[in-house]
Computed example of a mutant assay.
Amino acid sequence: MTVYAAGAVCWRVTNGKVRILVIHRAQRNDVSLPKGKVEAGETLPETAVREVLEETGLAIDLGVPLGVTSYTMPNNRDKVVYYWAAEVSPESFAASSFEPSEEVAGCEWMSLRKAKKTLSYERDVEVLERFQLLIDQGVLRTFSIIALRHAKTIPGSEFDGPDALRPLTHRGRTEANVIVPSLRAFGPSVLVSSTARRCIETVTPFSEAAEVRVRKTPLISQDAFEDGTSDVRHVVAKRVRKLTSAIVCAHGPVLPEIVREVGLAAGGTRQASLSRAGDLPVAGFSVLHLSVDQPGSGIIAIETHVPQLVS
Rank of each mutant, 00 (worst) to 15 (best):
Q222W: 06
P155K: 09
V22C: 12
S157G: 01
E303H: 04
R233M: 07
L255M: 07
V259H: 02
A147Y: 04
G41E: 05
S111M: 06
S311I: 01
T174G: 05
R28Y: 12
D227Y: 01
I258D: 08
S96W: 02
K238A: 14
A59P: 00
A176I: 06
G278Y: 07
S96F: 08
I23T: 14
G41H: 05
K216P: 01
R241Y: 03
D78I: 04
T69D: 11
K152G: 05
S273G: 04
I135A: 10
H24E: 14
F143E: 12
T195V: 12
D227Q: 13
R123C: 00
I299W: 04
S70I: 06
S144W: 02
R25A: 11
L66R: 08
S194D: 08
A246Q: 07
K37E: 14
T2W: 00
V68I: 14
S193V: 03
L165W: 08
C199W: 02
G161K: 09
Q294E: 14
G296P: 03
K79P: 06
A265H: 03
E108G: 04
S96C: 11
Y121L: 03
P281L: 09
P256C: 09
L255E: 09
W109P: 11
R241L: 14
T43P: 00
E42R: 02
L288T: 12
E103L: 11
F98S: 13
S120H: 02
E54L: 12
A151K: 04
L183E: 05
G278L: 09
S221C: 11
I20D: 10
R198N: 05
K152E: 15
L165Q: 14
D61A: 15
D223W: 05
S144A: 15
V180M: 05
L21V: 03
V80R: 13
G263M: 05
F186S: 04
R12T: 03
S189G: 13
G161P: 01
S207L: 02
